[in-house]
Simulated assay, not measured.
Amino acid sequence: MEVIAIQKSALEGMKNELKALLELTENATRKYMPIFKEEKWLDNQEVCLMMNITKRTLQTYKDKGLLPYSKLNRKNYYKLSDVQALLGAGRPYNTIGNASTDK
């Protein structure tokens, strides 16, 4: 085990910097908390598993405007209610062209 000795003032300075960083992080995330607390949000993988579709099919749904999404830090998120609404609609489009899957 290695022991490193530093001055108490240096340790206090590091503590203060860490506290300031924590406060900045909390302030930055505070404005997004109401959005995430109002409704459950799902990522790509969760939506694909829930709908039993591939990532490509999910991309098609997004491209055609069938499934709204929000982007945060280069990652897509979907409202659970939007996914459930699309599931309730019975996936109105297949992935080949715009042909309807309902007969």
Rank of each mutant, 00 (worst) to 15 (best):
M1G: 15
M1E: 14
V3C: 05
I4H: 04
I4S: 01
I4F: 13
A5F: 13
A5Q: 10
A5N: 10
A5T: 13
I6T: 07
Q7K: 11
Q7D: 14
K8E: 09
K8W: 03
K8Y: 05
A10N: 06
E12N: 02
G13A: 06
K15G: 01
N16E: 01
E17A: 09
E17Q: 11
L18R: 09
L18Q: 11
L18Y: 09
A20N: 07
A20D: 03
L21C: 04
L21H: 12
L22G: 07
L24Y: 10
L24G: 09
L24I: 04
L24F: 07
T25S: 14
T25K: 14
E26C: 01
E26L: 03
E26F: 06
N27C: 03
A28K: 08
A28D: 12
T29I: 12
T29E: 12
K31Y: 05
K31P: 00
P34V: 01
P34N: 06
P34Q: 08
P34I: 00
F36V: 01
E38G: 08
E38D: 11
E38Q: 12
E39T: 14
E39I: 09
K40G: 00
W41R: 00
W41Q: 02
L42R: 02
L42G: 07
D43M: 04
N44V: 14
N44T: 14
N44Y: 06
Q45N: 12
Q45E: 15
Q45P: 04
E46Q: 15
E46N: 08
C48K: 12
C48L: 08
L49G: 13
L49V: 04
L49W: 13
M50Q: 15
M51K: 11
M51G: 10
M51P: 13
N52M: 07
I53F: 07
I53R: 05
I53M: 01
I53K: 07
K55E: 10
T57P: 00
T57E: 11
T57D: 04
L58S: 03
Q59R: 15
T60E: 02
T60L: 03
Y61M: 02
K62S: 08
D63M: 02
K64R: 15
K64N: 01
L66Y: 00
L67I: 03
L67Q: 01
L67E: 01
P68G: 09
Y69F: 15
Y69I: 02
S70I: 12
S70W: 15
K71Y: 00
K71Q: 02
L72P: 11
K75M: 01
K75E: 09
K75V: 03
N76A: 11
Y77R: 02
Y78I: 04
Y78W: 04
K79H: 10
K79T: 05
L80E: 10
L80Y: 13
D82I: 00
D82V: 00
V83L: 10
V83I: 10
Q84G: 05
Q84K: 15
Q84H: 13
Q84Y: 11
A85P: 04
L86N: 10
L87M: 13
L87Q: 14
L87A: 13
G88S: 09
G88N: 15
G90C: 04
R91D: 10
R91A: 09
R91T: 08
P92D: 01
N94W: 08
N94S: 06
N94P: 05
T95G: 01
I96V: 11
I96N: 10
I96R: 10
A99W: 00
A99E: 01
S100I: 01
D102E: 13
K103A: 15
K103L: 15
K103W: 14
K103S: 11
